[in-house]
Design a protein around this nucleic acid. Sequence first.
DNA 1: AAGCAGATGTGAAGTTCATCATATCTAACG
DNA 2: CGTTAGATATGATGAACTTCACATCTGCTT
Lengths: 232, 232
Amino acid sequence: MPNTTKVTHSIEIKELLQFADRTIQVKKGSYLFQEGMEAEELYLILGGKVQISKVTQDGRELALRICGENDICGELTLFTDAPKYLLSALILEDAKIAAIRKDVIEKEIFHNPSLAFEFMKWMSDHFRKTQTKFRDLVLNGKKGALFSTLIRMTNSYGVHKDTGILIDLPLTNQELANFCGTSRESTNRILNDLKREGIISIKKGKILVHDVDYLRQEIGCENCPAVFCSID
Amino acid sequence: MPNTTKVTHSIEIKELLQFADRTIQVKKGSYLFQEGMEAEELYLILGGKVQISKVTQDGRELALRICGENDICGELTLFTDAPKYLLSALILEDAKIAAIRKDVIEKEIFHNPSLAFEFMKWMSDHFRKTQTKFRDLVLNGKKGALFSTLIRMTNSYGVHKDTGILIDLPLTNQELANFCGTSRESTNRILNDLKREGIISIKKGKILVHDVDYLRQEIGCENCPAVFCSID
DNA sequence: AAGCAGATGTGAAGTTCATCATATCTAACG
DNA sequence: CGTTAGATATGATGAACTTCACATCTGCTT
């Protein structure tokens, strides 16, 4: 029975699009969904940026991901009868988004092995990203949390320049702090240390990382493939 | 096309057993697999306990899960061509374990929609557990990390007694600390505070939690279903 | 019963981080 | 161009946590 032939699968995750119910345009600053809202759809981002985060009872915010083109969000309640979103999705940049009904996706996955396979692969990759990210946060202190976040952002939204990698997203200190579970002030101090050491520089709210290797080394990065080391 | 009929699925995750290559007995103290080993199988625990953890370059250990009967481990490299285990699996209690070849599982999932569905459901649940656990670690400091770990252990391995819930696992301070990313000393101090306040007591290396609600309240627990709040 | 190894308990000192306070910078707008 | 709101920068203070050191306890072995 065991057979080493590789299973081949011919579709990609963005082909979920064909099961979309509708496509929507959402403006920067609004929410695609919020914690506690009835969860009946999951979303495929066609353009723009969406930040997924969790708000605590005492008003702090933990940012988890920034999704861009071809990312999926709102997937957490699939395969359960949990009726409500667990996280909130804030639009960071005007976005075009396909909405896919949960029941349709579940049914489709049941009948379409290629889609099921591709979706599982996505979940698996997504799990690894999340786990390694949190591992960095827990094991390397607040500095490590920030370094890890910066590295991931270079992998997801980095643009290569002569002098380093530009993270092509406008980010305030507070927004970065939300990804790290730190205070705005701590984030600011660490960023300034990095500036003084020439590791990064900041222009117009965007961070240019001159020396990613320094950041990697400081958190004992094991150079896992970039697909598992991203912020999306 | 959209149809609200609930998809029904008739198998459970333990039916993976039918695809097992072999069943093995593993002794306490040995490793089922270790980081960096060639990963060709995933495992279904039939009995005993297995702790999954990550060892850092500087020798610290972050414990992630304790798996018991009907749990799956070694699943992280499924659906990728990553050839090596990313974590280590230490046997805490003599275990009986079914080994299932990755290529067999991938193929089977491709051809068996019920299995695929059930496996996805497992992955989805597992993701939620992991994410909420880490959220607790990051948002509520080391004390919150320990409280969260204790709560999860009562859900996974708790036995109800007159005076509270007994976590039926022998755990040293160091082992608990490894789950929280803290030092042994900090864990010890927090545990002693809890003892003095009558929240817990410890007998023969096992923790009896008298007041789970106190722990829940301190970390702003949102009372999610126990299936998402466990340590396995 | 004595001895030993591993686990627990706890003070003291140092580091990391959050919080509060306040000053400065920057971009947008009349 | 001056005003203003929001963002950044930085000192000071205290809380949280780690580290080191050492004492004590506990269960196991001979």
